[in-house]
């Protein structure tokens, strides 16, 4: 797959079909994959693909706005939804992007893997996809881990393992099975079932830990505002200094802004340094939006986002 990818990128760069290509390369250690910007054919051989290619690269295409040419991008099925949304929200023209769809057979959640292996990811030298399991190399030893043990949550209920709107594709997904009963909204439903006070306690505990580093915002494809409402000085929605008691405002407003935009790429949760389960907050909104307004973000180009749309017969409990 990597060869095919590299060849394609060389070809597209050579043709001038795109100005540069955004993919993944290995970082400072084998288990650490970082985004890679290939501007020259000679650099194409750095591109890799595998179960540790976690980042949603979509946000980087916004850079292409100022280019005359196009930007190429490696897109997993889940991240393809971000592209749809960015096009829909007028952030980029679809024809400015060359989408290279990659068949994804599941991504590793490094936190889960560390827990299962009992060692830090730094010691993992290779992770290879082997159908129903991953082959994980630690200190020369290869062990097999069932996918259900270490997959990212979102991979359990993946609907689009391959990008559904691509210009080029690297192939088809090989079917695999995950030995798991988990359903898309399990985590949300578990919280919903808690008594109100316990839920309050749960979230306050989460919000209290926030250090307002803004990583969730910076990584989010949907946070493309030129000026974030939280950075405004007129008016100031939050205090000049990050007061812990305003963390909840920050997270709830962010959730509201992403309602109907969030495509569940999980980047916010992945980058959160204090492990706040932000995904659950956004997932809750996704669930309600699907149930109440029959809408799923990033699936179609020509639907109107749910909060700027309405039906005359929307549910109305407010009479």
């Amino acid at each position: 797959m990597e060869d095919k990818l590299q060849e394609l990128v060389v070809e597209l760069l050579g043709d001038g079909a795109m100005e540069y290509f955004i993919g993944y390369r290995q970082g400072f250690e084998p288990s650490h994959v970082v985004p890679c910007f290939v501007t020259d054919k000679s650099e194409a051989d750095r591109l890799i693909w595998g179960p540790l290619c976690l980042q949603n690269l979509s946000k980087y295409v916004l850079q292409a706005r100022d280019l005359d040419g196009k930007v190429g991008l490696l897109v997993k099925g889940c991240d393809a939804r971000a592209i749809v949304e960015l096009v829909k929200q007028h952030q980029i023209e679809r024809d400015k992007i060359v989408v290279v769809g990659v068949p994804c057979e599941g991504q590793v959640d490094p936190r889960k893997m560390e827990q299962v292996l009992g060692v830090s990811m730094e010691q993992v030298t290779d992770v290879e996809d082997a159908g129903d399991e991953f082959l994980v190399k630690v200190g020369g030893e290869v062990s097999k881990l069932g996918k259900e043990q270490v997959l990212r949550d979102k991979c359990f209920y993946c609907k689009h393992p391959t990008s559904f709107d691509y210009d080029y594709t690297l192939g088809e997904v090989q079917p695999f099975t995950i030995d798991s009963e988990s359903e898309e909204y399990d985590a949300v439903e578990k919280l919903e079932e808690l008594p109100l006070e316990e839920r309050r306690a749960y979230w306050l505990k989460q919000f209290e830990r926030c250090i307002r580093c803004n990583a969730c915002r910076e990584v989010c494809y949907g946070c493309y505002c030129k000026e974030c409402i939280f950075d405004r000085t007129d008016p100031r929605w939050l205090d000049r200094t990050p007061l812990p008691r305003e963390n909840e405002i920050y997270h709830l407003i962010r959730a509201v802004h992403l309602a109907g935009r969030c495509i569940d790429c999980g980047e916010c949760e992945r980058v959160c340094p204090v492990n706040i389960p932000l995904g659950r907050l956004y997932k809750k909104l996704q669930k309600d939006i699907a149930e109440l307004f029959d809408y799923e973000a990033g699936m179609e180009y020509d639907t109107v986002p749910p909060l700027v749309d309405f039906e005359l017969d929307d549910q109305d409990p407010f009479l």
């Binding site: 952030q91 493309y224 030129k226 405004r232 909060l307």
Partner: peptide
């Protein structure tokens, strides 16, 4: 500071 998301238009 407008990023042209188009919500207002909708």
């Amino acid at each position: 500071t407008c990023s042209a998301c188009g919500n207002c238009v909708e």
